[in-house]
Write a protein that binds this DNA or RNA. Structure first.
Lengths: 208, 208, 208, 208
DNA sequence: TATGAATGAGGCTTCATTCAT
DNA sequence: CATGAATGAAGCCTCATTCAT
């Protein structure tokens, strides 16, 4: 019983590492099986299609991010500070310890862009993402309620987009931290932090 | 002579379309040859490795972007207005007519993240990107010189990062405009324009 | 004890249905196990090789045919009428209720044509078939003895072959009743009955 | 050009032999490729799906039968004699030289019984068979016109069915000539010839 | 030079059979 | 004894790349 779960875990973990290192297409089911010390057939018993495994890995990766945000929302800070923390967490996604996971998510987005993925599968991913975005909107709501964030309706939409772009950009940077700077100049954490601070500053002092 | 160049062009164009539709891995050399009315062997004569073709396609795609920026820098506007124009161009990259190219670039960035690409190849890409970033820094310089942009050294770095993030996020959005909103909520051009306007506004009125 | 026999029966029955629906090769041991509500390992305990199960299923299918012929031989009719009944039974093999079984036998014959089957196994099948052919020759003997069939030795051989062909053809038709008429035009029961009647007619009035 | 056709021929022939020896499912594309001294990829270039190859092989096998019937119809004999010849040809199908081909056709019929075959494919087979059945009905027509066959409408239907059964049974016998007699007692050519003669006899002297 | 043909290596997936509980 | 889990061998098919005309 426990062994079964362990095996499953081993397979997912091996897959996660390989996927994030080589991408989904270059990672073969055989490699994953070997890396988990499992026969291919076993791998296929757990995940009948390669895509099933991909979805599972991605889902777990997203879920790994949730606690970070949960911790923030349960803290005693004001809304605006929680926003600050959220942005900080995003910035940390680029750091060594989180990079693998984030890179994986980025790769998945590419995958969906070129490979038709079953709707049912996408919905699972959507649900996982939903948990995080729910928390974030809760935080914004808190901020509005405790008065630490004061935004007009129109500004609110704009800031929503800004946060979106901030997250999108940062996630993408994770893909390139190992590569020469050629393609995309990747800001370091200090630079991102300054941007974040500026954002928070403007958020506190909206242009009249 | 001329015919040879035309052929080459046809191949690159066919490749570009297919790559941006199906991604690099799913597009076979055979399909590209067929689409260009050329034998596979001929395709391989011009591009001995698939990767060579990829690089070439990407390079040309980037170069296609250059004129947009050249036009801006040669206009008679003030620096800050040119910045505005640059951001507007980025926003347009997400539009129908440019999406294909931009999507291709995005796909390439992910490609390089998972596939070791020969340094020599990357350098070609780097050079192509360099043209654009050179123009942009020229524009910023102009802005500083004509006084329409007044930034402290530290702010300059920050805004550099901000522009970077803006571009990065937008380029990524191009990948998803055809997909359901599940993975990434993609802002539309109006929303992006508002963000841009806010950026320009702050740029003109830096926080004291 | 009884339960064990029931299980065995369930397995054989599930196998029979699946075999006759999808053929031997396309039917997996797993499917059979599932359909019988038994674990695969159990299935293999009862039938260590897939072929063992095939043989068993076929044997039982043949044995299912025996009572039809037994009933005929135990009736009070004359030999020639019993022959008529036997042919009628064959014709009915093509009907809805018997098709499954007959189709299975047909499939098995093709199976043996391409797969080396252990002699010991074939002998079991042979024995099962033997019961039926024994009954039939008994019937013919009866017919000769009661005078309802009058055949010279040479004619006897011929009619033996004719009956053989009649049965062979009919069994084969069962395979195709669900298929479009393309490959083999399958006569319906009325047509076959007319042929049978003609045969009986000639049998009663041998050409001088 | 010639070489290409030769290769194709080699592949089809190798396939034919293997298919008729081991059946369709047990014959792998790799084996066929090896036997034709061709790479698998080449085999797949000519026949993109295994089924395509099967269809092709079967089609050619049927077409190989056509000349036998063409020769008969072009002879100067009377209709009834041509019928005799046709039946004789069928009997010869069981002989050494034709067995392989006939066995193949028999195997194909099993294949279609358990494997959904694309309609378009079946139609090709149907067309091939059509040539032969067209010739045969022409022969019957001739016989009626030259008076050598005199049948009432109802008798005509019956004899149609009888011929059908005759052919069906004989084709099936080809499958078993190599096997022990266990499953199906296979008549030899002499026995079949006697049956044929009896049929012709009755055909000439229809029961009043 | 241009090209269709040829191909081996490799990927995904299935299945009869064996293990371990 | 019953069983779900495990597995390697094998099958179909694809594709970048090379050959031969």
């Amino acid at each position: 019983m426990v062994k079964k779960l362990e095996r499953r875990k081993r397979m997912i973990q091996a897959a996660r590492i390989l996927f994030s290192e080589q991408g989904f297409e270059k990672t073969t089911m055989q490699k994953i099986a070997d890396e988990s010390n499992v026969g291919v057939a076993t791998l296929f018993r757990y995940f009948p299609k390669k895509e099933d495994l991909i979805i599972e890995v991605v889902k777990e990766a997203i879920e790994q991010h949730v606690p970070y945000f949960e911790e923030i929302i349960h803290s005693n800070k004001k809304g605006i500070e929680k926003i600050d923390d959220v942005l900080t967490v995003y910035i940390r996604f680029i750091s060594e310890e989180n990079r693998e996971t984030t890179k994986l998510l980025e790769a998945f987005e590419l995958y969906t862009a070129f490979t038709p993925v079953e709707k049912r599968m996408l919905e699972e991913i959507e649900k996982a993402y939903g948990e995080i975005s729910h928390i974030i909107s809760e935080i914004v709501k808190e901020g509005k309620e405790d008065g630490s964030i004061q935004l007009s309706i129109s500004d609110e939409f704009i800031w929503n987009t800004i946060f979106n772009m901030f997250g999108t950009a940062i996630k993408k940077y994770t893909l390139y931290t190992f590569l020469p700077d050629v393609i995309l100049p990747v800001p370091n954490q200090e630079e991102l932090t300054e941007v974040k601070n500026m954002m928070i500053h403007f958020l506190k002092n909206p242009a009249k």
